[in-house]
Simulated scan of single mutants.
Amino acid sequence: MDPPQEAAINRLVLWNVDLTLVDVAIVARDAYAEAFRAVTGRPLVKLVPPLGRPDSEIVFETLAVNGIPAEDDHLPRFLSALAMAFADRRGRLAKEGRMMPGAKDALKSVSRLDGVVQTVLTGTIKSNAVHKLKAFGLDRHIDFELGGYGEEVYPKATLLQVAQGRAKQRLGTPFTAANTVMIGDSTRDVQAAKIGGAAMIGVASGRSMAAELREAGADLVLPDLSNASEVVAAVAGLTSPVDRKAG
């Protein structure tokens, strides 16, 4: 008797992290302040708002608004210092931050879909993204090696394609807009999905309101992740070519 065949992985789900799955803004700001002082020798006066941007972009803008001319080694030094500062504060994440409503059940429920693999597409650098999700027990269903992160100096739409390429290399399946879905809370996430080649589920729990997400082009918009069945149905419908043509 032949051994059972493993199910093919043919759905790629990309999660934004901040304000989609977790909110750890207080700890992140403290880590930025320490990293800024370590790199520049000056106290941080103004941190530019994230607004869905990658850490690499935030670093350059933060240096600029604080009157620090950017030098060639500033970005790698800052990101290294940021990783260390954040790791030193990882014990505060669950105490001073919060898991977004329904995040754990949504991840668990989506993981049960046939052929699905879940990863993250985030402006956060990889080590910090791992800390953020581990602090709330949200890392169990995430394959971090397939994701796209803030230390990779690309627009988020390009990072989406990088993640699709990593998934194809590992799993042997081509990932396109027909079987890739992104879940995020900002219009920047929507734009990245539309440009990069993925369906988009907007979650109105963070930076953008439901109407803004719809106007930006999200395929579906949910108020939050608290209805896991609704999240699963959205992912299933948007990663099934037959369903999408029928709709």
Score class of each variant (00 low, 15 high):
M1K: 09
D2W: 08
P3N: 03
A8D: 04
I9Y: 09
I9C: 10
R11Y: 00
N16H: 09
D18A: 10
T20P: 08
V22I: 08
A25F: 05
I26D: 15
V27P: 02
V27F: 09
R29C: 08
R29L: 15
A31W: 04
Y32S: 07
R37Q: 13
A38H: 06
P43N: 00
P43S: 00
L47K: 13
P49H: 10
P50S: 12
G52A: 06
P54S: 13
P54D: 07
D55V: 06
S56Q: 06
I58L: 13
T62G: 08
V65L: 07
V65A: 10
G67K: 02
P69T: 08
P76L: 03
F78A: 12
L79K: 05
F86R: 10
F86G: 03
R90Y: 00
K95M: 13
E96N: 05
R98I: 09
M99R: 13
G102K: 07
A103W: 04
K104C: 02
L107K: 05
K108D: 12
S109C: 07
R112Q: 14
G115R: 07
G115D: 06
V117W: 10
T119K: 03
T124H: 05
K126M: 11
K126E: 11
N128V: 05
A129R: 08
V130R: 13
H141N: 11
F144R: 05
E145Q: 14
L146N: 06
G148W: 01
Y149C: 10
Y149P: 04
E152H: 09
V153Y: 00
Y154G: 02
K156M: 07
L159P: 01
R166H: 03
R166M: 04
K168I: 02
K168C: 11
Q169A: 13
G172L: 05
T173Q: 15
P174R: 12
V181I: 09
T187I: 15
D189W: 01
Q191V: 08
Q191C: 05
A192N: 06
A193T: 05
A193R: 04
I195N: 13
I195Y: 12
A199N: 07
A199S: 15
M200T: 06
M200G: 01
A204K: 06
G206V: 03
M209P: 11
A211C: 06
A211Y: 11
A211Q: 12
R214K: 15
E215Q: 14
A216F: 01
D219Y: 00
P223G: 11
L225K: 12
S229N: 13
E230M: 14
E230T: 12
G237A: 03
L238F: 02
L238Q: 01
T239N: 04
S240M: 01
S240V: 04
V242I: 12
V242N: 13
V242Y: 12
D243P: 01
D243K: 15
K245L: 14
G247D: 08
